[in-house]
Amino acid sequence: MPPKVDLNKCDGCQAQDEPLCEQVCPGNLMTLGENAKAYCRELRDCWDCMSCTKVCPKGAIDTRVPYQLGYHGASLTPMMGTNSVTWTCVDLNGNVERFRVKTRGRYGE
């Protein structure tokens, strides 16, 4: 599941040594390119955990399904809250499905 970085939105985390996506990737795949923006050094090695997509403060990273597995045009976008994450999923027909999922805290609290 290769991550795609929108170069217009990515600011390389303002040229700090390691952008957030590089900090977090469990496979050491995200890194800063020569243009001081993030990119995935080996698309085929991505495990699609979406940690980079979740953490990017500019929302510049989009997770894709490889075309060998699924068709083009669907999207899944996470938005991190303080103790929840909100997902928007859009299928090939443009149907939108939304999910709000608790991530921290006891049920009932």
């Binding site: 500019k58 929302g59 989009d62 999207s75 976008t77 938005m79 909100t86 928007t88 939304r98």
Partner: peptide, 8 residues
Amino acid sequence: DKLAQMRL
């Protein structure tokens, strides 16, 4: 920008 991706 993020909201637009979220279809909000």
